[in-house]
């Protein structure tokens, strides 16, 4: 059963990867990577159950966190041009 889950995950990974490589714009690429992160989390969870050692879920948890932080960092970069303080903080600085 978990083997079927892993098969589905890997097929989806291939489809997403095709979009990440084809993706005409950089946004498509980021979107694909976001979904890919979710799938990696699922892959690790499914593998843990397949090997009957689901304790490794900690890593899946860490991945979910890192994926989110990474995507937000990337988007912040695109929105403001660098990874410094947000727009609001910089506006305050300009006024002060």
């Amino acid at each position: 059963m978990f083997a079927a889950a892993i098969l589905a995950i890997i097929v989806t990974m291939l489809l997403i990867l095709a979009r990440a490589l084809l993706g005409p714009t950089v946004w498509d690429c980021i979107l694909a990577i976001n979904s890919f992160g979710t799938l990696t989390v699922l892959l690790i969870a499914a593998h843990g159950f397949l090997m009957e050692r689901p304790e490794f879920l900690d890593i899946a948890l860490v991945y979910a966190l890192i994926n989110f932080i990474g995507i937000i960092a990337v988007l912040k970069f695109f929105e403001y041009g660098d990874l410094g303080p947000g727009k609001r903080a910089r506006l305050d600085e300009d006024q002060g």
Binding site: M1, L7, V11, L15, R19, W27, D28, L31, S35
Partner: peptide, 26 residues
């Protein structure tokens, strides 16, 4: 649940490939 989840994962993957622009792929 697991098979259903796998099905929807693959559908999502197909959607990412088939839909025409970035916002629909969301």
């Amino acid at each position: 649940f697991i098979l259903g989840g796998g099905f929807f994962l693959i559908v999502g993957g197909i959607g990412l490939l088939r839909l025409p622009d970035f916002f629909t792929r969301l």
